[in-house]
Design a protein around this nucleic acid. Structure first.
Lengths: 341, 341
DNA sequence: CCGTTGTCGGCAAACGTTTGCAGCAGGTTA
DNA sequence: TAACCTGCTGCAAACGTTTGCCGACAACGG
């Protein structure tokens, strides 16, 4: 059937071990022999059988990537970056989707465990205990969650939330709402904490609403509750919810940012497609994907369990404007200048 | 290290072949023995080593899924459906991204070929010849492209384009533009052909602009050219381009659908997030993903090479309105009624 | 009681690699 | 000249399964 190491050996008049070494330890074989073997291999169209290799080395050269929801536009850029980066290191990536369900999540890790060299766990919804448990079965790198002793890549969403809240405070808002994300999300806790602390320190109010599924419909559904609080500015767990809210407010003829300012988190592509364009916190998702792959791959070598914290950026667009404390006629341009000071 | 079939055999006092059979051919082993083996296997936490199994059976229980761009919101629902469906059949999915580059595409198929039981090639940009070539190396199912003799799942985008054009004609438009997608896209040719034929049959004009990359920026960049044609309605290769165009028109104070109507294709999530909401052709992407997986899996059994054509639906929203032939004051509601007739 | 049939389980040979060990040639050192 | 490297290659044993073949044994019909 397929051409094996044995065919190449026969055709080039060497032992199979020499062929094997030509590929897996080239420095151990005479350059002359090597090029001869390489030539016949090329000619015969030989491709190493990864299953056989995996069987003996114990390394599959595959990694698993588990995300909450592929259809959530936050993830694709991360998946893409991780996949490309892994392939450059001769690894392939299994992508799986948990539908935001912690049970499915645990099952998936179990199922993939024996078939990959490690798993990237992205925004997991499991408990810390569960994750530490699973770590004993397979190397893990967690993305967007900090667990002591576990290698992790997080985007500094706390800092992002602080910037966002400060931006709103600077605009004069004194009563804010935080639209909570899903239960079990570490990111959600971080944002809530950071936003709460920042608001409190400035003597402003922050009302927390939620939890919500991180989708547009949940954001839209929260509109009534938001208005009921009387707040003039909203920070949402993610852009999808922020966008949902944005549109529900428009449907109710509530002006954004005239009456209510809205800030999202993630900076997904759609955030520049809606009107007004969304002020949001940009996350370096691609960088996170790459960093996580690197971390996972070198975790095998040494036993290092570093934690990487990536910087996030507030991107000010048009969904935020002056709050009640500023002169009513101030334009966003003036406000932008004001914010700079 | 890991618990193997041998450990289970020893612990339950049978030969390894019996253990193997309890898993891969249960009917060949005595129910009593079977349950005993199963029990000890469970207790020891035994998991079959897929590499070893693959080595001897030649089936990896993996499939590859190659798409043009994971970050294009058209693909994630398809990926998600394929992945979930495959897992239900005990298959795992490798996802890879070609960045719309036919060379990368060919490389990826080669790289994955030996490691999977088959590949789902989604909206390929390669030539038909190349694809037929690759088919000799690995079972293939093509999505969104029709090649004689090759198993394929396509969404009937021709029919979608016809509905879209007819909708525009019914609204009174007489000069249409088709905003072409990327070079090498079968879908693009189909749409162009169907749209052209439909317009021509009605005695209307259809100007083709392009090719373009299937992204929002390309749609926006085409705005000038569109206006220069003097057309009153535009069909775009996909929603991203349509949305880009929509916004570029708004930036130029061109009213949509007042002065120009815009129709997209795909019905991505963002098409209801923009204002006006986009009239578009909904594609059954999830169904396509599932169908393709099934087709690939049973391709191994018999040698069947069916082709499936999935129905598409025109979704009329607010980006289309009456053309110059209708009374200027007609509202979209009246027009919708008119279209029904 | 013998022969036949059928069920079950063991034996051992694969599958395509990697890798520790040993051999061998040629060169260097003592 | 002996002893010892050094660089290269061959040998063979793994890795954890699956599976064709055969033997053991029980049941059954004649």
């Amino acid at each position: 059937m397929a051409v094996t190491i044995r065919d190449v050996a026969r055709a080039s008049g060497v032992h199979i071990s020499t062929v094997s070494r030509t590929f897996s330890a080239p420095h151990l074989v005479n350059p002359e022999t090597r090029s001869r073997v390489l030539a016949t291999a090329e000619q015969l169209g030989y491709r190493p059988n990864r299953a056989a290799r995996a069987l003996i080395t114990g390394r599959t050269h595959n990694i698993g990537l588990i995300v909450a929801d592929i259809a959530n536009p936050f993830f694709p850029p991360l998946i893409k970056a991780a996949e490309t980066h892994a392939r450059r290191r001769d690894y392939h990536v299994f992508v799986a989707d948990t539908d935001e369900d912690p049970i499915v999540e645990a099952d998936l890790v179990q199922a993939l465990a024996k078939q990959v060299d490690g798993i990237l766990l992205c925004s997991p919804r499991m408990t810390d205990d569960q994750i530490e448990q699973l770590r004993r079965e397979v190397p893990l790198v967690v993305i967007n969650r900090m667990i002591t002793g576990l290698p992790a890549v997080v985007m500094d969403v706390g800092q992002g939330a602080r910037s966002a809240v400060r931006h709103l405070l600077d605009l004069g808002h004194r009563h804010l709402v935080y639209l909570s994300g899903p239960r079990g999300s570490w990111t959600n806790r971080e944002i809530r904490r950071a936003a709460g602390a920042t608001a409190r320190a400035a003597g402003a109010d922050l009302t927390v609403l939620g939890p919500h599924q991180p989708v547009t419909s949940a954001g839209a559904a929260a509109a009534e509750a938001v208005l009921a609080t009387g707040a003039t500015a909203v920070l949402a767990y993610n852009d999808l919810m922020a966008i949902g809210l944005l549109q529900a407010l428009q449907d109710r003829d509530v002006a954004v940012p005239g009456e209510v300012s809205v800030v999202g988190i993630d900076d997904i592509a759609a955030s520049v497609l809606v009107r007004p364009q969304l002020t949001t916190v940009a996350n370096p998702t691609a960088a996170a994907g790459r960093a996580a792959v690197d971390m996972l791959l070198q975790q095998g070598d040494d036993g290092s369990t570093g934690q990487i914290n990536l910087h996030t950026d507030l991107v000010i667009r048009n969904s935020t404007g002056p709050g009640p404390y500023l002169p009513a006629g101030a334009t966003t341009a003036e406000v932008a200048a004001y914010v700079k000071e």
